[in-house]
Design a protein around this nucleic acid. Structure first.
Length: 417
RNA sequence: GGAGGAGUGCCCGAGUGGCUAAAGGGGACGGACUGUAAAUCCGUUGGCUAUGCCUACGUUGGUUCGAAUCCAACCUCCUCCA
C-alpha cells in the first residue's frame, strides 16, 4: 500500500505519517477526486499542546497544503468528562474556566500552521462541547447507542486486552468510543467531513465513528492514524527534565525549543526532518546522508526549520545564532534566556544558591549544592565550587549580565535592573 | 451485598517495631569520553537560616521510650462471588 495517486496520501506516506488507514484505496480515490474535509480532536487538558501532538498538527498542515480542508476539534466537552484512556487514575478535575483558558492557548498553535476562513480549503475550528454538553442520555442511547454492538465493542483491542487480562474496565471508559464516534457523526452532519485522523492509540475510537456514520447515514467514512512516536532509544517524545516540550512560547521559549531539536539523537534525524519540517524530500535525503559529526549540520537545520514553523523564521534564526555563539564561540550571547533581578539585590550580595534557583536552573538550594559538588555549576564560565559564594556587581560582565550555567547546555543570564 | 487483596519517594518495587530520608531497578540531573548525539563508566537523586532541624511511607486517631512497620476507624483502588 505504498503507492498512492492522491497528492495528500503520497506526501503523508513518504514522510512517514501513516500507521494505519481503514480503506487506503477508497480514501486515495476520494482524495484524488475531490476536496476532502478531515478532522483531528485535541483535549484541553493543558494550556498548550506539546511535541507529542505535533505529528497530528503536521498532518493537518499537509492536508491543507495538498488542497483539502482541515478541522481542528477542541475537545472541551470530552475534557470535562476526563479521558479515562490514560492509566493514571489521578487526573485532575478541571474547572470550566481552566478548560476555556487551555482551549485559548491551544488554538494559537493552529493559527500558525493553518489558514482559517470560509473558503473551500480554509480550516475550521470546532468544539465538541457544543453538542456533547446538552446531550440527553435517553435520546443518546436510543439514537446512537442502538447502533453500537457490544459484541463488536468487546472485540476491539483496547477492550479485549483489558478483559483478557481480567483488568478493570469502567463503563465510562467503555462509553468513550461512543462519544468519540458521535463526534465524528456530528461533524460529518455539520460539514460533510469523512476522514478522522489521530495517533495510533485512537484507532479503535476512530473506527467506531466510521461504523456509526455508515449505520446512521450510509456513508463511507475513513480512519487514518499516525505512528506513536518514540526516540530511537525508546523514550517517549516530548519529555525532558523540565517536563513536556510545549509548543507555545509562554510555556517554552523559542531558544529552548530550538535546543530540544538540536539535541535529537543521530538515528532520529531523518525521521524527524520528514515529520517536523516542511523541507523538500530531496533536501532531507541529502541531509540524511551526512555521517559522523557532519550530522550536526543536519540537526541544526532540523532545529531551525522546526522552530521556524512554531515561532517564526526570525525567532528561529535568533535561537540558532544564540546557540552558535554560546556553544561554538563560548560567548554569553544576548539571546540566552534572561532573568531580571533588582540591582539593589546584587549590591547587597546574592548567594549562588539563591541565584540558581531564581534563574530556574535548579529546583532547590540543595539541588544547587549537589550540582556544585558534581562540578556542574559555572558563573561567567568559571566553575564555582563554593556554595557560600556571593554574587555582587563585580560579577556583572561587560555585557551587563551575570552568566549562570548548569552543565554544558543550560545557561541563563541574570540581568540587574 | 459478601469474601479477599492493595495503597511506600518522579515511576516501579523491597521493607513488617529502633541500625530507615527508607534496599534494588528505571527515569532524571551532574561529571568523564565525544560531535550540544548514542553507547559506556563515575557521581547525585526530600526541604531548610545545615556538624543540627523539619517534613515524608493513603487519612485520622491510638499502643509504645520508639512505628512505614502493631491496633482502630475512615478514604481510595483492585480481584472474585452475588
Amino acid at each position: 500500500m505504498s503507492e498512492y495517486t492522491s497528492e495528500f496520501l503520497t506526501v503523508l506516506s513518504e514522510r512517514g505519517y501513516i500507521h494505519q488507514v481503514s480503506d487506503p484505496k477508497g480514501l486515495d480515490a476520494l482524495c484524488a477526486k475531490e476536496t476532502v474535509t478531515a478532522y483531528i480532536g485535541f483535549d484541553c487538558t493543558a494550556p498548550s499542546l506539546h511535541v507529542g501532538s505535533l505529528v497530528q498538527i503536521m498532518m493537518m498542515y499537509w492536508l491543507q497544503q495538498t488542497g483539502h480542508r482541515p478541522i481542528a476539534l477542541m475537545g472541551s466537552g470530552t475534557t470535562r468528562v476526563g479521558d479515562p484512556t490514560g492509566k493514571d487514575e489521578s487526573r485532575k478535575v478541571l474547572s470550566d474556566e481552566t478548560i476555556e483558558d487551555n482551549k485559548a492557548g491551544i488554538r494559537k498553535v493552529f493559527d500558525k500552521l493553518l489558514t482559517f476562513g470560509d473558503g473551500p480549503t480554509d480550516a475550521l475550528m470546532m468544539d465538541n462541547a457544543d453538542w456533547l454538553l446538552g446531550l440527553n442520555y435517553m435520546n443518546f442511547l436510543r439514537d446512537i447507542g442502538r447502533h453500537f454492538s457490544v459484541n463488536q465493542m468487546i472485540q476491539r483491542d483496547s477492550v479485549r486486552l483489558r478483559l483478557e487480562r481480567e483488568q478493570h474496565l469502567s463503563f465510562l471508559e467503555f462509553n468513550y468510543m461512543l462519544l468519540q464516534g458521535y463526534d465524528f457523526l456530528e461533524i460529518y452532519n455539520r460539514t460533510g467531513c469523512r476522514l478522522q485522523m489521530g495517533g495510533s492509540d485512537q484507532w479503535s475510537n476512530i473506527l467506531s465513528g466510521v461504523d456509526l456514520i455508515r449505520r446512521k447515514v450510509a456513508v463511507e467514512a475513513f480512519a487514518l492514524t499516525s505512528p506513536l512516536l518514540t526516540t530511537s532509544s525508546g523514550a517517549k517524545m516530548g519529555k525532558t527534565a523540565d517536563g513536556a516540550v510545549w509548543l507555545n512560547e509562554e510555556q517554552l521559549s523559542a531558544y529552548d525549543y530550538w535546543q530540544y531539536w538540536r539535541n535529537t539523537e543521530d538515528a532520529d534525524v531523518e525521521r524527524f526532518l520528514k515529520l517536523f519540517t516542511i523541507l523538500p524530500m530531496d533536501e532531507i535525503k541529502r541531509l540524511a546522508a551526512l555521517e559522523g559529526s557532519e550530522i550536526n549540520e543536519a540537526k541544526k537545520i532540523l532545529a531551525t526549520e522546526a522552530t521556524a514553523l512554531m515561532h517564526g523564521r526570525n525567532k528561529a534564526e535568533e535561537a540558532a545564532e544564540t546557540a552558535r555563539k554560546a556553544f561554538e564561540e563560548g560567548q554569553s550571547a544576548e539571546g540566552l534566556p534572561t532573568v531580571e533581578i533588582a540591582r539593589s539585590g546584587l549590591e547587597a550580595g546574592l548567594g549562588v544558591l539563591s541565584a540558581f534557583v531564581l534563574a530556574g536552573l535548579c529546583a532547590s538550594n540543595g539541588d544547587v549544592r549537589r550540582n556544585i559538588k558534581g562540578g556542574g555549576v559555572r558563573i561567567n564560565d568559571a566553575v564555582e565550587q563554593d556554595a557560600n559564594r556571593q554574587l555582587t556587581l563585580d560579577d556583572v560582565t561587560a555585557d551587563g549580565v551575570v552568566k549562570l550555567s548548569l552543565g554544558k547546555k543550560k545557561h541563563v543570564l541574570l540581568k540587574p535592573v
